[in-house]
Nucleic acid binder design. Structure first.
Lengths: 255, 255
DNA sequence: CCGTTATCACTGGCCTGACCAGTAAGCTCA
DNA sequence: TGAGCTTACTGGTCAGGCCAGTGATAACGG
């Protein structure tokens, strides 16, 4: 085996791919900013020197990737979209669906992410972020009477606020994704089971504890409480013989 | 505002999307398994009752999403691909590029994932998994003389083995994704900077410490060492004023 | 008899040209 | 001035065609 040169595998490059690349790079470079418009398909045909079906294939791919959006009849042409994590959300949903990820794994992962978010938030939060969290808890408190719909929304908002305060957008995005995945797996059960004032009140108390730890700057405590809260909330949906990993995530901070 | 009915927003559904949906669902249901083939484009045209450009748009989208692959001239038709996290890796790379995710956030996230993987592995690992980790370390030891290429590969294999032992495929995939993203951002620097015997020896020692903690079943220690190791390894690539979150992830187990 | 090679039917990649439906700007007219 | 209509574009879809690449199979040579 010669060490002189390293060769990469090659694959035939389709025309539409070249087009996708060019547009992607233009967006990445900032030459095309969200809100701006691409030339019309027929104009792109002349610019790229390809046929309309080919240009359209490229546009469909870009559209599927959330980079642009074509609207039938829009005289301004396809629109450059702002970045969104929807795409990754979809990807992770696919991961869960195809890679037979168990609900135990999902919840375990949520415990990790949420715990870490709380830990970081406790260290890094600003006063403003702190009061943002307080506001979501106030909404939750009000929503106990209003109904589970509102309560759940405020719940999500709280976790979102914590994630923001952790100053790590990956945590934010992943947490959001996993939360969505969990909910989609147990949504109907949750809607009925947790639609009780007592449970909401308990949940609110847990959230308050987390917030208190974050306010106190006690990261480990915030993380521990977050994880425990999630465990208690969701353990019922996990078969008993799969709860080991969840427990393993909790009993480390107190031994 | 009437509470009677909830309406979702609608968008015109393109024909190619219906095709994508149908094929996606067939794969999700398991009617189409990896390795199997789709009918030829012309056959799909008759089955879906759409024109060839439309069918092709659908195939390009599916291809871009990593679900199928068309090969020019292949008489067997497009191939159903096995699930792969490549797509998510690319997505995350895009996230980093467009959503101004800093390298600090990436490394912080890696510390979280890797730490959690070590923690869980310490609790859940089987003897076999333990010896798998040992084997990768042995390869690393050998590779110190061989070169950084081999060493790095074994390094990855070790982390992979730990992730597997954590029994959480989400950790496994995400860690892999983030590792890829980090490397793609600092690849050239690393290739040169760490191509030193002393550094490799040091890295190996760190890995051995982690393994020891995992073998001892000491989750917190394994997690703490993992995180510290990553910090020391990568902190150099993070601007000093962004290292706060990284440090926040470490000083909790020892206070 | 078996391995090699050439054939060929079919594949995907790409193009042309056309028709319809939707959009919004500008015009008309009250 | 403002509401409606016209119109010149847009994207969505189709039919049909050409070329190049692939792989099973048939013909071939040892």
């Amino acid at each position: 085996m010669s060490d002189g040169a390293q060769f990469r595998q090659v694959a035939p490059v389709r025309l539409y791919q070249r087009i996708v690349e060019q547009i992607e790079q233009a967006i990445a470079r900032g030459d095309l900013k969200p809100g701006q418009r691409l030339p019309s398909e027929r104009e792109l045909v002349t610019q790229f020197g390809a046929s309309r079906p080919t240009v359209r294939e490229a546009l469909r791919v870009l559209e599927s990737n959330g980079l642009v959006r074509s609207r039938h009849g829009d005289p301004n042409g396809p629109e450059i979209l702002p970045f969104s994590s929807d795409r990754m959300t979809k990807e992770m949903a696919r991961l869960v669906q195809f890679d037979n990820v168990s609900i135990a794994e999902l919840i375990s992962f949520r415990m990790i992410l949420d715990g870490s978010a709380s830990l970081l938030a406790a260290r890094l939060r600003s006063e403003e972020e702190l009061s943002a969290m307080e506001r979501t808890l106030a909404v939750m408190a009000d929503a106990i009477e209003t109904g589970y719909e509102e309560f759940s929304k405020a719940d999500v908002a709280f976790h979102e606020a914590v994630a923001v305060a952790s100053r790590n957008s990956l945590i934010e995005v992943c947490n959001q994704v996993v939360r969505g995945a969990v909910l989609s797996l147990i949504s109907d059960k949750v809607a009925h089971a947790h639609n009780s004032t007592a449970l909401m009140r308990e949940s609110l108390r847990h959230h308050e504890e987390v917030l208190e730890a974050i306010r106190a700057g006690d990261g480990p405590a915030a993380a521990s409480i977050s994880r425990r809260k999630l465990y208690e909330y969701y353990a019922g949906y996990v078969p008993e013989d799969e709860r080991g990993p969840l427990l393993a995530l909790m009993d480390d901070e107190e031994g």
